[in-house]
Amino acid sequence: MGHTVLLTVISLGSVGLVAALILYFISQKFKVYEDPRIDQIQEALPGANCGGCGFTGCRNFAEALVKADTLDGLNCPVGGASLMTDVAKILGKEAVAADPLVAVVRCQGSYEHRPRTSVYDGVKECSAAHYLYGGETDCHYGCLGYGDCVRACNFDAMYMDEKTGLPVIIDEKCVACGACVRACPRDIIELRKKAKKDRKIFVSCVNCDKGGPARKACRVACIACNKCYNVCEFDAITIKDNLAYIDSFKCTFCRKCVVECPTNAIIETNFPPRKVKAETVEEEKKE
């Protein structure tokens, strides 16, 4: 009996040994040198593969970081400044601070503000509706409301508001990866500089029509009246194609333009209530 056991042990052991030797030599022969820092950095990255850095996945970004001479222009919006400092430490390079961003939806065309003029009966995707026509309202620039952006969001930072039919971004969860920006066929969503206490001032409209038709299509449309442009002391506002735009890097959050806007197209969020109540839109009903 003992003989059989011994034989088994020896034969199996030698098979194992030979296999191990073969594996060892093969792994030595075909070894590919890889910078160990790539793995280290990948470990540090969030691993969401969201594409917010502009690379396909965290691994590619890590490789690019290791290869890069400076870290200028390379930024992981999810991890933010603290992560980039860690990465810089691993690489022994200088961290270049990038401003944290946050996505905003530049459209207020809710059911209430934008009268419907037709019914879309196709596939419930913004891209398909955009391909077909201007949309259910007379505003051919605004939100279509089928939620391509919400489906694109990997961080549960967006939802569709059923009352307004518009997408809502949850600031705390938004990592500014830009997936929604890319998903939106109408370029409504913009990444803006994140300010203290998540304060925001922006023109919440993308309608490039002239004032009259724009206003007719939507009560809160930008009509390019130039009032905000005239009141801004910091050159933060530009008017192009019948549309005002506030540069989030130049804006000082003085809130003067918000008061001036006759259609409430400029909105402010997360500010303390004003002491003196600004006179709001004169509810003119022209039509």
Partner: peptide
């Protein structure tokens, strides 16, 4: 001026 045509856009 602009006007909506069969393309569905102005």
């Amino acid at each position: 001026d602009s006007h909506t045509d069969t393309s569905g856009y102005k």
